[in-house]
Amino acid sequence: MNEKTVTFIVDGKEIKARPEQTIMKACDEAGVYIPRLCAFKDLSPFGSCRVCTVKVNGRPQAACTQPVGEGIVVESQTAEIQQIRRNIIDMLFVEGNHFCMFCEKSGNCELQAMAYRLGILAPKFPYMFPVRGVDASHPDIFIDWNRCILCARCIRTSCEIDGKNAYGFIGRGPHKRVATNSSAGLKGTDADVSDKAPANCPVGSLMYKRIGYAVPIGCRLYDKNPIGSDIEMKKTT
């Protein structure tokens, strides 16, 4: 067994890690939460949302993909980095149609929870109000593209966990969106209610049907505790 450890600094705190770990994995184990949206514990790192941006020896890097290194100095909770994160969340809100007031995911939504954690009262960029559709053709699952933040967690879950290939990206830049692997839409794919993909969607974009609003307001995942507090709890244990 390789017992080698590396030591690095995050916001002035010394953290020990195994050399093969990413900065995010090492920080998670040490009880230091780095905000993230596309990174997910059961999936391989993707590095697309950039919410986990940290400065490594002064250079911005995605903590979910950047490996640890001996003696590196990582800045995460600085005013500058937090503002970068706020800007990213702001942009995600204005470039979609995020109607929290009637969304089934509200209270359990990671995008919303991230905005709460970062103390965002209103996005500062102009709303784009894009015209996007819904695919409700499948009997048990639906896609609402209005809420999609292009994190690829559905695509990766379908491949890596469900062993399918139900979703994929099409288009580039502002035209990029998640597509289903069938011209007939979701009903033409092998997506199934037992798939993990809908469960791993951070927002209300890929959802199981008929379970909305099951948990009352006040008891939902992020009603009382900010996102990431489960990781930060490790600090005290």
């Binding site: 809100f93 149609n97 995020h98 109607f99 929290c100 007031m101 009637f102 009262l121 209103a122 996005p123 709303y127 109000f129 894009p130 015209v131 996007r132």
Partner: peptide
């Protein structure tokens, strides 16, 4: 002060924006 989602982002009425 903008109070509530409708003042801040249009809210439900903004469903007609598309």
């Amino acid at each position: 002060i903008s109070v509530g989602d409708c003042a801040i982002d249009g809210g439900l009425p903004a469903l007609r924006n598309g």
